[in-house]
Structures are given as C-alpha cells and as structure tokens.
Nucleic acid binder design. Sequence first.
DNA 1: AATGAATGAGTCTTCATTCAT
DNA 2: CATGAATGAAGACTCATTCAT
Lengths: 208, 208, 208, 208
Amino acid sequence: MGAPSKNAQNGDLRRLILDTARHLLVQDGYSNLSMRRIASEIDYSATSIYLYFDNKDMLLHALIDEGMNQLFDALSTIAKQHQSAPIDRLEALCDGFISFGLDNPEYYEIMFQLRPERMERYPPEKYREARRNLDFFRMTLAEGASAGVFDVVDPRVCASSVWASLHGTVSLLLAERVDVRIDRADFIQAAIRQTLRSYTTSKTAYHP
Amino acid sequence: MGAPSKNAQNGDLRRLILDTARHLLVQDGYSNLSMRRIASEIDYSATSIYLYFDNKDMLLHALIDEGMNQLFDALSTIAKQHQSAPIDRLEALCDGFISFGLDNPEYYEIMFQLRPERMERYPPEKYREARRNLDFFRMTLAEGASAGVFDVVDPRVCASSVWASLHGTVSLLLAERVDVRIDRADFIQAAIRQTLRSYTTSKTAYHP
Amino acid sequence: MGAPSKNAQNGDLRRLILDTARHLLVQDGYSNLSMRRIASEIDYSATSIYLYFDNKDMLLHALIDEGMNQLFDALSTIAKQHQSAPIDRLEALCDGFISFGLDNPEYYEIMFQLRPERMERYPPEKYREARRNLDFFRMTLAEGASAGVFDVVDPRVCASSVWASLHGTVSLLLAERVDVRIDRADFIQAAIRQTLRSYTTSKTAYHP
Amino acid sequence: MGAPSKNAQNGDLRRLILDTARHLLVQDGYSNLSMRRIASEIDYSATSIYLYFDNKDMLLHALIDEGMNQLFDALSTIAKQHQSAPIDRLEALCDGFISFGLDNPEYYEIMFQLRPERMERYPPEKYREARRNLDFFRMTLAEGASAGVFDVVDPRVCASSVWASLHGTVSLLLAERVDVRIDRADFIQAAIRQTLRSYTTSKTAYHP
DNA sequence: AATGAATGAGTCTTCATTCAT
DNA sequence: CATGAATGAAGACTCATTCAT
C-alpha cells in the first residue's frame, strides 16, 4: 500500500516490480508503461524484470490477476456486510464496484479497458475466472427474485446488464467524458438509482 | 501498381487513408495504429499521408469528427421518425446508439474509448460540440417528463446515466467481455429495457 | 527593405524567395532553413522555388552574392567618405564591417560562417571574387604605409590580420559568447582600437 | 565482425563513439552529424550509442567538455612554462590557442563555432565554466599592466579582444578563407604580432 | 508560370528482448 | 540473483527533389 519503496526486503523484487508498474500505469498511462521505465524507477536493470516475468504481457497479466482479486475481496466484504436484504446488498455492490474503479483507475484500465484480442498471450481461462466477480451480482439478483423483491427473469443476463451500467459509469468518469456541469456524486447516485429502479418490483421498494 | 487500393481514383487518397486508419484501428487497436502501417497498407509512402494530414492527431481528429457526424445523423433520423411518443423515441434512440457502436466499432473506439489526456492535441471545444449527441436523450427525457410519462428530475443527469448504460453495453460487447452463454440480442434488449424501466412512471407504461 | 511582403508584383517571385529565405535564416538559423518552409511562408508551392533556383545550394549562393555586394556597397561608401586620412578611413572601415555583421547576422552567417567544403556546389571563383571586400583594407593600409602613418610591411597580410580581428569580434558577438559583464559597445571599441594601435607608427597618432 | 574499429577493447565503446563523432564532425560538419552516421561508421547499431549518451546533445556536450579541458591543460602548461615575463607568456598563450584550434579543428568547431541558441540543452553554467580559459589571458594582461609592460585599462575587456583576434584567425584558417597567396605561418605570426603590439607600452618592447 | 502528387532517405529516439557473464 | 552490452524493429516526422500536368 502506498508508493513503491526501494527499501523492499530481499526477494521482494517481484512485489516491487508489480507495485511500480501499477504506479506508473496510473501516472503515465498504459501506452507509456515500458519495461525500461519500470526498471529505471526501481533502480534495477531492465534485464532483472525478466527474471520474474517472462515478458511484458506476463507482467500485465499478473497485475490483472491482482486487480481481479482485489475487486473480488472488496465485493466479497460488501456481500458479507449485507447478507440480509438483497436490495441493500445490490446497492452496496454497485457502489463498491464504482468506488473500486474510481479508486484504482490503473487496475481498472488493464482489467476492463484492454481489449483481450490485443493481449495475445493472456490465457482466455483467466477472463473466465475473472468473471466470478459478476457472480456477486447474479446471486444477489437471483436471491432477490426468489424473495419477490426483484423483478428478474434471467439473473445472468440481468447481472451483465447491471455490470454494463456500472462499467459505463466508471468508464465515462475515468475518461472525463461526463458533462462538467454535472456533479460527480450526483451522477454516480443517479446511475445506481437507475439500475436499482429497473429491477425492484415496486417503485416504493426503493427510496434511497 | 501492385495493391488494388492503389487504383483508387485520383484525389481519393485522403478518403483511402481515413478508411484504412479506421480499419486498422479496429483491427489492431489504437496503440498499434501507426502512420507507417497505414501507409504500407495502402501501398503509399508514409510521407504521402502528411500531404493530407498535418500529423497523426489531425488524422485521428478527422476520424472522430466523421464519427460524431455519422452518429448525429443516425440519431437525428431516429428522432424525426419518432416525434410523437417520447417513450418510443427514447427506446429507438437507445437502440440506435447501440447499433451505431456495434456497426462502427472503429469509430466508436476513437470517439468514446480514447482517454482525452492521451489525445492532447484534440481541441476541447470538439468534445463539447460532440456532446450535442447527448442532447437527443436529454430533450426526449425532458419532453417525456413534461408529458408525465417519465419520472425524471434532472434530464441532464438522467441523459448521462442513460448514456453510461448504453456505453457500458457497447463497450462490453465490443471487448467481447460478455458471458458467451448470453445471447447477444437478449443482452442488448435487457440493457435497453433496464434503462427504460428506470424512467417510465408506471410499470405498465413499458411492455416491450 | 523590411519584412518580405506577399504583395510583390508579378515576376518578383525570385526576389520574394530571396527575401524570405534571408528572413527565415536570421529567424530560425541555417539548419532550420528549408525549401518547404520558404514556400509555405510565401504561400507558394515548394515546387515553384525550383523555377527560379536549381536547388537549395543555388539559392544560398544567390544570397551569399547579395550579401557580398551589400557589404561591398557599404565599405565602398565608407571609403568614399573618408578619402583623405587613411587612419580615419581604416577606423571607419573596421566599424563598417562590424556593423554590417551585427546588422545582417543572416548574411554574415552564410557569407563567413559556412564552411565552403560543405557547400559543395558553390563555385570557388565566387569566394575569390568575394575577396575584393578585403581590398578596401589592403589598399588603405598600403596607402597609409606610403604616407608613413602606418607601420606595415605586407599590406596583404596585414589586411587579412585586420579582417581576422574583425571577424572574430563579430563572430563572438553573434554567438553570444562574450562575457555578459562586458558592455557591447566597449567591446567593439576595444577591438577596433586594438587593431588600429597595432599599425599606427606612433602611439600619439591614434587618440580615439 | 567486419570493421576493425569493432575490435576495440570492451568498454571502450564510449571512447570510440566520442572519437568517431569528433572525426565526423570535422569531416562533414555539424549539421551532417547524426547518430546513425556515427553508428554506421563504427559498425554498431544506433541504439548502442544511447547506452552511453542520453541523447545527441549529451554526446556533444561531452565533446565540448573534453575540448575545454584539453584547451585548459594546454594553456595551463604554457602559463607554467612562462611564469616570469608577461609578454612572453602572452605570446606563448596566443600561439598555444591558435595551435590548439588548428590541431583540433573538430573540438574547435563545437567549442566555439556552434551557436548556443541552437544547442538548447547545453547548460549555461558550462559556458561560464568554459570561460576560465579566458582567465589565462586576463591574468597575464593584468599582471603585465601592474608591471608596467602592458598598456591595459580593463584586463577583462582586453582579454576578450585578444580572444576575438585569435578566434578570428583560427576561424578563417579552418574555413580556408584566407588568401591562398598568404603563407600560413606568416599569417599566424602577423596575427599574434598585431595583438601584442597593441598592448605593449613601447614599440621597442616587442621585437619578435 | 505554377502546382499537386508523390517519394526515398534521413532525423532522433524508444522499445522489448536476448545473451553471455 | 543480477547485470551490461547489444540490437532490430518501430515510432513520428522532415527534407530536397522529381515528374506530369
């Protein structure tokens, strides 16, 4: 946590590389992330990075994995904290997803905005595994449907729809494409409310 | 001599460059789009491109402008065809936006998925002008609110929310991030329905 | 005289090109002087320049010729104005040379600071012809020697020595290599005085 | 493999680059000196140069620094060898400066004939530091003035004047601009004599 | 008299990667 | 475990020049 430090203990070089890569990613953007830059930032030779990662793609994949795990942990914690009411849980999950994206733009970029077709060496099963984050939404929707509080036919499809909304919201915010006259918090709230209202069985069921 | 593209009518080189750039953009991604590659694809020297565009950014801006205009035309036509009922018009606009994105992934990518911070030379007023596409949604929502068929407090914020949903939907589809077990048409329909249900005043108002 | 104007009459394009080239030369330096830049400055096509000059070198040579002639005119006028006293004339010539250099840095650069070996296509006889500017100094020194006011053995050699001094003075000033704590006028005066004192037969002969 | 230069001792590549750059500089001129050319001359890839120099400017600065130091050493040795008589010492310094210029045209060119405005990245303090070579002249003139053998009001200004003369002399010789009918040694001797005669208190004080 | 179209060679520089040590 | 040396390929861009019209 925090800026990468050169005081890392022996053997922590792998860790140091990952942290620095993430750091540089958010600082200079994906297309400016280079092996040599990472190396010079940590005062190691570029060659050293290859001791821990086969190539640049592998390094990125490791970052993606980390990001996926962090998101999983975040959503997992939220799910535990809102076990009772599916509606509340769904709202909290939406909020958690958006917060994660805005708080970790560097992860978000490589996790969701890199086109897999252009990440040739990233194994497809990784993406599938990564999809488990979606399950939090799917399961919550399914549970709410059973309980009669959600009007949901196919939870899998709905979960993807919710995800699309959230992803669109985060993307526009990160890309600074949202009308500057709109308050950021208002926009986020509106996005979440829009999502929830779509699925609650009665308008009165959701009064944020 | 050689490539068929070189037989294009004289003076059409500018057009050919734009089309090829668009083509390569969707094929190999933004960071792999280079002047050299465009040139070699059309069997012209890289220098020739500079006869028609001051630099790479100008070429991209021309593409963005074209895309924005095409989207504007598409939405404009739709708005005219659905002047009477705001609900129908909103649905058609949503559908039109998604269709545009899926049909023109190359335009969509540069229009909405390039981070402005990394397109330094794109004049900000362009982004502002581009925003007029959002006005179709805002005006429709405002009109529906006046007519009592939409439950909308701030049309500007809602329009952006709608846009976020649509953008997320298109993005996930283009990036092939949607669960393969979900039917594409179903997913799109679900996304639109989700959006419309959020704003219609009564559940009965929207029965697709 | 003054900045080149696009209002040049028909047929004056050659003149316009030369003026613009000179203008750009002093503004951006020799290594930034390009045919295309000249052309765009005068709103003509680059090709048009080739109607008047075989190539870039020929254009430069024309400029050098012009510069040489202007310097000749300047020194000629000075010589006429100081026909009587060789000492005064020599001083005025020195002053005139330095002034020319400082007032026309663009000419000076191509006239005296371009290495002929690197101006392959410049005919050597041009340089020889250009040397007639030196004759003003040689003749003045010879005349003063005859009159007993100059202690000069070989006027040709001395003229070159004088020229070296003046050239060094102008060069250092143009290159901004002179200690900033030294007043410009003082430096020039010192340079001229040093030159004159070397050749006057008695110290008392020169009291500026 | 191939060129003999490639057989240079390991680690000597930096040295080889500097020497080659110097060589090409005097051979083809500053504006024709490119990283590529240097590289191809020594049969290394252009990339390799960047292992030893951050960029082209840094390479040139290294050359300038070397030249300045070599000149300093030369003048320093001369000053030590002529500690007693300021007149002799001044003459020897003049001779030393000219010799350095003629013997090291490549250093001379970058040290004194590059316009600083076009060497943007050369730190100004370097120029200031470089000026210490001028101090040999200034101190000698000051010392001679104290001893009554030099007629010098402001040693700083006079030193610059002397420098201008010497610089002009070297420049004209290197540029092969001196009348071919003049013997090279005669020209140099005349230039030095002219300089010395200007400052010696009595004509009789200097009989070379 | 003037130009539009086109280009090959060249500019500096960055990159991911390999290999021997 | 770590590195220094090295490179081929590529990046955007500029240049002087030619040729057909």
